[in-house]
Design a protein around this nucleic acid. Structure first.
Length: 275
DNA sequence: GTGACCACCTGGCCGC
DNA sequence: TGCGGCCAGGTGGTCA
């Protein structure tokens, strides 16, 4: 499941190959991937556009085209592959971009959760998904005052609040567990009850975890690989996530798995006390 | 405004 | 071996 570091890795891999390439045409095989506009409009408008730049905000990949932004969210299992035109289409390849160098960029998504939007440059502030999105982990405005303000009315577990993209973007289930472990905070603790010191821990550990994960190329768990099947190495660094009934690296207690807001959540009951 | 729940999806795993 | 049920989880929508 790609989170911010995985998306950053994918974006960088794509950028290396795609800058300056012209999209000759697009074929949408599974229409639900295209959220906006209609599939026919999407295919028509993107024709002839050149990829000028590639960016990322939160878990969104942004293809900067001549007249549009192509926004792509990989959700659970979205991947991009570069293929030659004579290679057979696979079962889960849902969108194909035909490029001017004869190569095809194929969007592959086993669970079909991914989304794409094509937004004119002038409309990005009106229609983009960024309207409701929070701050990037490295944003200077992300401080304890900001978090206190956002958390003060949140009487739900901090684990659930960390996944809320309207507060901090890019944190998913894996990194939320890691951030809370490093911060020594129990995942069920109510967000509104966190002290300034704990908020400070969350901010610094969010940056730390994201920085490290990006350096390692993200985390490869079960379903995620970056472009053309490249695997991230951060899973070797995970301290709690996926380590149910294994010993904690810090204290030797056994890691436990619970469900918080419907999500599988790993924590050390000794390092992360519920007070 | 807030929080809980569900739908979207498919493959892997487990128990029977 | 085959089948059914559960689980994985990011996001948006609905409802109380």
């Amino acid at each position: 499941m790609p989170e911010l570091p995985e998306v950053e890795t994918v974006k960088n891999s794509l950028k290396n190959r795609l800058l300056g390439k012209r999209i000759l045409s697009v074929k949408v095989v599974y229409s639900n991937i295209i959220e906006f506009p209609s599939v026919s409009e999407f295919e028509r408008k993107i024709k002839g556009q050149t990829i000028r730049d590639m960016n990322r905000y939160g878990k969104w990949i942004i293809f900067v085209l001549d007249d549009y932004y192509l926004l792509s969210h990989l959700r659970m299992e979205g991947k991009y592959f570069f293929k030659n035109k004579d290679e057979a289409m696979l079962k889960h390849e849902h969108v194909v971009f035909f490029l001017d160098d004869g190569i095809e960029l194929r969007y592959h998504d086993v669970r079909k959760f991914g989304k794409m939007l094509l937004i004119p440059h002038s409309d990005i502030k009106k229609y983009g998904p960024f309207l409701k999105m929070g701050l990037e982990p490295w944003d200077d405005r992300l401080d304890v005052t900001y978090l206190k303000d956002k958390f003060c009315r949140k009487n739900i577990p901090i684990k659930s609040v960390l996944l809320d993209q309207s507060i901090i973007v890019g944190i998913g289930n894996i990194y939320a567990d890691e951030i809370l472990f490093l911060s020594g905070i129990h995942p069920l603790k109510k967000a509104s009850c966190l002290s300034f010191e704990e908020l400070d821990f969350i901010i610094s550990n969010t940056k730390k975890v994201m920085d490290e994960a990006i350096k390692k190329g993200g985390t490869t768990i079960r379903s995620y690989t970056s472009v053309n099947g490249v695997h991230g190495l951060f899973q070797q660094e995970l301290l709690v996530h996926g380590r149910d009934r294994k010993k904690c690296f810090k204290c030797g207690h056994f890691i436990e798995k619970i469900r918080v807001g419907g999500r599988g959540t790993y924590f050390c009951p000794s390092c992360q006390k519920f007070d």
